[in-house]
Design a protein around this nucleic acid. Structure first.
Lengths: 365, 365
DNA sequence: CAACGATGGGAGAGCGCTCTCCGAATGGAG
DNA sequence: CTCCATTCGGAGAGCGCTCTCCCATCGTTG
């Protein structure tokens, strides 16, 4: 054990002071092999579970691994396997192309981002994988992401876009890089993704409002160039129609708080008699509530309001919002799982996995 | 002992199908050397800017690099340099030790997290570095972070804690790992950090309230076991004292919206006559506003309210909050910069860099 | 009893890079 | 002109790992 000082890397300045412990050079395969009295190859086999190794020897090796505290050197391993054992978590389309500093965009501050990260990490961490965080808000940044992946710095990418027309999915497909999206791509693309059943979510909202006894129901939709907004609106209208309400007034917002306020004003002026409201996301609903109050409508007594997303805005609103919850963390975990299957087997067919949302009842409806 | 097998999937089958283009094996140093008519060593020297290389040869090599589209192989490089060229972005103390799934904690959903990430990425990306995202909310997770760093999977860590008594900074120091904190550690520790001048921020709030003409000013403080809360409170009181208001009523909250509501109720019952309010964070202020309104106080006419953080809660509040803004992104960038200096030179003395906050005037004061 | 698969372990060749030598060339001083 | 210091490029030894050969040792069969 103690005779290896000469083997220390040359670059390592050895002030032989007792103060700084001499950097416990982590054990290598060689060390484990010596400790177990076998060859490097055998230890490698045990670690990677390749081929048959005599159970007795296997046990010996495992003990040696434990004793030496051996941990495989990632760099050495990926040098030969051409795999890094890490994946990129890309947040895309989240910034101004022309802002003075694209990083200071508010979009990154979206709490949703943190929830996705949590789900991804929650799945990957037990597997010893840690995601590499990348932002792709400009063409240059996108190119960097692609280059990074092509150089094999990560085995694949999970991608969450904040814009509907994000060009990155297409780039990933063209480069034949393993990738999985959060939410369906705006244009059909041979790429796997996870998503939530927006229509079902909207139906839950409709059912709840009707069950509450609402008769004159309206909705504030998201930007209709976004597929998800369309789905939520269509799902809501279909469900309401099934309940005998074929006409549902709709005002379009753009998912921001301000647009929620404006939409609410417009809606009230056109349809002052509404008693139920479905808003395509919580943030707009949060904007709508004070407007309702200002116009003398009590929530939920006069107007019942259902949001969508179960974001922090839902709990921050007063009253707290009844809303539709996506299992964001579960979806993110599934996205990571899907990616790993694609990384393991590039011929894996592309798939999509749709999650069912659920109704969270709070005080607004 | 966790199974090593799960760390990396067993070998992957390489179907050598002709269908898939044979993956244009990226050029190596050798290729560039051949193209330039020099040795590997010389190319390496040019790339790393080590020693003198004849300008003519340098030019030739650079051209060869460009022609071949050469990009250094990270794994090979870190195998020999013992450096990965990547750093960990650790979000710590952000979860329940005992929750059913610690990842589903709301704390990760804090928008603040995204802002820090933006700042870090903004600094690192131009340098070709991409942070590895890690969460450290349990003892096990913390151990994993330490192990990961000690194995040299990352050269260092930037750490943002959401708990004041986070044990991770201490662990990092003990393991002699390069690390920089966001915010001063709760206990004195030889570790570099960036922070904001809480007292100055509180003073800005005080000055503004006084300049507005407020005479009976109170404050809602954060949890006083947190250093930052103490500083904000002390800074506010000092500044108010300097303005001739030696006594400032204070109610303690715990930085949540609910606690802001409760604190506001208490404050109003004890001091119904206040005309100015400083709240130690925006979220509590957001909770306080409806309570004020409910008690018939108009904001800012009857009571002027100043928050702290300039978080999304500030703009989501009605009226939008006048608040104290930290340059979070700049601080995060500086944190990354500091870390790189520590990675480059482990003997670099620990330093702290304190940023000046600024007053953002909106409608609440 | 010879011959022959299986089975299981070792030897060793790299993966792509850095960096320490070493030697060739150059220039200036004695 | 010789000698040495200096500059600069090449050779080559690894870094720690995987994986292909290859060989030893079985048990089984003709």
């Amino acid at each position: 054990m103690g005779s290896l000082e000469s083997a220390l890397p040359p670059c390592y300045k050895s002030h032989m002071s007792e103060v700084r412990p001499p950097l416990p050079a982590s054990p290598t395969l060689e060390d484990v092999a010596r400790a177990a009295g076998v060859s490097r190859a055998t230890v490698s086999r045990v670690i990677n579970g390749i081929r048959n190794v005599d159970p007795v020897i296997q046990e010996t090796v495992k003990r040696a691994i434990a004793e030496t505290g051996y941990v495989p050197n990632r760099a050495a391993r990926s040098l030969v396997t051409r795999r890094t054992g890490s994946i990129a978590l890309v947040v895309s389309g989240a910034g101004e192309e022309s802002g003075e500093n694209p990083f200071h965009s508010q979009v990154f501050a979206d709490p949703f981002f943190g929830r996705v990260a949590s789900g991804v990490v929650g799945f990957l961490r037990p597997r010893g994988i840690h995601p590499i965080l990348m932002f792709a808000e400009t063409a240059e940044a996108r190119a960097q992401v692609i280059a990074y992946l092509r150089q094999g710095n990560a085995d694949g990418a999970v991608l969450v876009s904040t814009q509907s027309d994000d060009p990155l999915p297409r780039l990933l497909v063209d480069a034949a890089l393993p990738a999985v999206l959060f939410a369906r791509p705006s244009k059909p693309l041979p790429i796997s993704y996870v998503d939530v059943a927006h229509r079902t979510g909207a139906k839950l909202a409709a059912d709840h409002l009707v069950a509450r006894g609402c008769r004159r129901v309206a909705t504030i939709a998201g930007p209709l160039d976004v597929q998800a907004s369309q789905d939520r609106l269509a799902g809501f209208r279909d469900a309401m129609a099934a309940h005998g309400h074929p006409y549902i007034p709709c005002v379009e917002g753009n998912f921001t708080l301000d647009s929620g306020e404006a939409a609410m004003e417009r809606l009230l002026s056109q349809h002052p008699g509404i008693d139920g409201l479905f808003v395509a996301n919580d943030l707009m609903a949060q904007g709508a509530l004070p407007v309702l109050r200002h116009h003398g409508r009590r929530v939920p007594d006069d107007v019942a309001v259902v949001g969508f997303d179960d974001s922090s805005a839902a709990t921050a609103s007063r009253p707290p919002l009844t809303t539709i919850r996506h299992p964001v963390e579960d979806m993110a975990a599934e996205m990571a799982r899907l990616l790993l299957t694609h990384v393991d087997d590039p011929d894996q067919p592309v798939t999509s996995i749709i999650f069912e949302p659920s109704l969270v009842i709070r005080d607004s409806a």
